[in-house]
Design a protein around this nucleic acid. Sequence first.
DNA 1: ACCAATCTGGTAGTGACTACCAGTACGGTA
DNA 2: TACCGTACTGGTAGTCACTACCAGATTGGT
Lengths: 210, 210
Amino acid sequence: MPDQHSTLRARRRAETQRTVQAHAVRLFTERGFDATTVADVADAAGVSPMTVYRHFPTKEDLVLADANVGLVADGIAATPANLPLTHRIGSALVDSAAQLSSGDVHDPGSNRRFLLARLQLMIATPALRARHLDNHYALQQSIVGALTGESPDPDTVFRAQAAAGACLAAMHTALVRWAEDDGRTDLPDLIAQALAAAFGDDAIGSPTRG
Amino acid sequence: MPDQHSTLRARRRAETQRTVQAHAVRLFTERGFDATTVADVADAAGVSPMTVYRHFPTKEDLVLADANVGLVADGIAATPANLPLTHRIGSALVDSAAQLSSGDVHDPGSNRRFLLARLQLMIATPALRARHLDNHYALQQSIVGALTGESPDPDTVFRAQAAAGACLAAMHTALVRWAEDDGRTDLPDLIAQALAAAFGDDAIGSPTRG
DNA sequence: ACCAATCTGGTAGTGACTACCAGTACGGTA
DNA sequence: TACCGTACTGGTAGTCACTACCAGATTGGT
């Protein structure tokens, strides 16, 4: 069997995923998440309900699915290990946000606009908000992994978990504010402000921004 | 209409709620949350499935429902307003945990044991974990309300939200550790340690413990 | 004894989600 | 070019959470 699967199949698969997710986010935004059935999404995307479930395990994943998982953890590993934990995590979060929130605010097809629409859905819909916070919990574990490496010391892991969870919660506050402002405020700035509010104004090093 | 409803009706209602929830947590722990249907819970509790839904809006609420909401917010208001935000929130969290986690570890009918069983379910089951984190989000809002009062200044609210979210995330790390240790460690101590790991060892004032 | 409010239960749905099965298109091979 | 294993897609039937809508029973106050 070919371990490197064909590019054509993979591209088609990614294509349908993007199409289905785009139609889903559009319909959810227009009519509301609960008022839109999976069958509606399937019809709009021109596929069968079965195909939707093949690509997205649950209806909620139509909004939550994100290809950019792991970006933060990679950024963690690139920070100097001698800094305090909250320093390292905070800088990585700010940098990742700078990468993800790039793009034009007014371009409706931009990645930034799509991210914003998904985020607004996640905040407004209870079921999505809950799942979104649980994703943060998973992200926290990957950050802890990047911070502690193979260290089996329970106390080290515990401290890293507490720091990572606190940083992510502060970032979440910034994300909510960003969504409420409809993306008009600079997201990395908001995250830095939230981190400063939680950990003190001097707790965050100078992020890599001009 | 009588605004103060009869004590007999209220007591019976609370009684059935306790019974149903106790059977639910027991069955969920024995067989797993997903493998147990609401009908199973209703049968075990000796009521109809309809009655279960009258008392608990969703299956998840059978585990999540907690009468002790508002305890933290009350504790916040009792803290001196001149302390840093994370100080005030942290002390209130430690104090609330001391009240809630009291009771014997070995007494299977104790409130502490029941709280522990529910917490272990919330951590092990993805759907419950997500809802639990969303409850923390609601708790965060109530803390912010207790902190800021009627202040309409957006920046004040933003800073309070960031601080409250960060403190709650640190507490959650402590809760997970407590559940993993099956309640053997002192919960207020764990929370204080988590807060110290996130905000620095000197960030938490002396909690009201001997 | 009577009324209003509440609690409880039954029925018939909707909708998310899951096997199980069949048809079809792709990718590599002879 | 013909062939075959694999993956993608679709249909059917079913489970289960959850929701109106309705009917009977119980409680509290008049």
